[in-house]
Structures are given as structure tokens and as C-alpha cells.
Amino acid sequence: MTEPIIAFDKVVKRYGSHIVLDELDFSVAQGEKVTIIGPSGSGKSTVLRILMTLETISGGVIYVGGEPLWHERKNGDLAPAGEAHLRKMRTQLGMVFQQFNLFPHMTVLRNLTEAPRSVLGLSKAEAKARAEELLKLVGLTEHADKFPGQLSGGQQQRVGIARALAMRPRIMLFDEPTSALDPELVGEVLTVIRRLAEEHDLTMLLVTHEMRFAREISDRVCFFDKGKIREEGTPDEIFGNPREERTRQFLSAVREGK
């Protein structure tokens, strides 16, 4: 196997005395689609938020593309990373949020061109061309000049996906992308994510409660519990024949909830 694009090495995350990630070892291969499932408070969203550098780590090392994410190499040692290093590392990752977090005062088009222009230095025309291509991909071409507030939740989340893709990340993080949506709007968002998974070489890390969807698109499913991976395997193994009692409990609880 080639070097993983994401590697967690004994990563610890603590809030005071509460341990969210407990010496987590976890890795993702280039192009792999990994779904993280687990009860709330199991640390699954924290994994994504730490990767996006929205939250710091308390211990351990994370490698993204072979480079330490939260550290810089200095004379062979690892020192805490400065802002410049974090900025450089962040360009490899894109994130889709549960609450969309679109910029409400900007049009859909502007949401997609803001960062490519100000961060990547694209010209207005280049950024617009890229945005229009992505709007086509998520099926929102005719909504380019609307404001997010004029769109449905499902449409907003599709804009959120397009906005993250506009930065051409190698890794896409989806943090419960459909949890804030009305049930009838979930499908359109999942369709877009499925297309991405099937047609692109993106590495995808997805936290979701949509078990059937996870089963369809994932190469691997990780069941998180109490800050650790309790069980991982192919979707068929995890959903079809889980080894751990805790995994079975969780899955049956989720199914009954449906």
C-alpha cells in the first residue's frame, strides 16, 4: 500500500478532563472514501474539525500528504506549527458543514469565487468559469445570482459542496452534510456527493447518520465509540456482519429510530 494521505498517530483531544479522542490511530489512503459512524459524542466530528484545523489537538501527530499537519519539522524535531504552515496545509482540504455556513451577504456565485480569487489569486474570469462549472456539477446554474437565503436547504448545501470544491482540495470532509435538512431534501445532496465519489479521485471523509448511503458509497466504514475506532471494515462487514457487540447495538438503535 502507498503512503496514506491522512494518518493519525496516537492523536489525543481533550476538553479539560473530558477525553474526546483517545490515542487515535487512523489512516486514509489516497482516493479512498471513508465513512465515520458512531453515537454522538464519540469524537467523529472532531476528527474532521481537527483535520480542517478548526480545533487543535492535545497530543499525537497527524500527517496529511506525508507532512505533519499541526507540527513543523525543525532540525529533525517536530515543533508546533505556525500560521503559515497551517495555511499551506489547509489548501489540501475542503469541508462541507452541517449548517452549510454559506456567506449570506454574498450571491451564490460570489460564495464560490471569493476564496479562489482572494486566496488562490485567480482572475475574476477564471474564478467565474470555475464557479459556473461547479454550479453545473451540483445542478444550480440558474441560481448563481441568488442569495443563499433564497434557496432551500438542499440547494444551500449543494452550494456549500461547490464552494469547497472551488478550492480544488485533494481531500473533502463532509460533516453530517444532511443532518440539518428536511427529509425530502436529503436525496438531492446525497446524489451530488455520490456523483463526486464515483466520478472523482477525491479522498473523501464523511461523517453521517445516513447508513444506507454510507453503505453504498464507502470503501471503508469506521465505527467510532468513546474517542476510538471500535470497529472498521468494508461496508458489508460493518453493516452486514459486525463483529463487535457495541457496533451491533448502535446499528440496531439507528435502524429502530428510522
Binding site: M52, L54, R90, G94, N101, A115, V119, R163
Partner: peptide, 13 residues
């Protein structure tokens, strides 16, 4: 909203 800061950061703004 804090999410606005998070989105901006995720986009490296």
C-alpha cells in the same frame, strides 16, 4: 455566527 469564521478558515481566507 461562529460558522462563518469556520467556513472562512476552511477556505483559507
Amino acid at each position: 455566527e461562529p460558522g462563518q469564521h469556520e467556513a472562512a478558515k476552511a477556505l483559507d481566507i
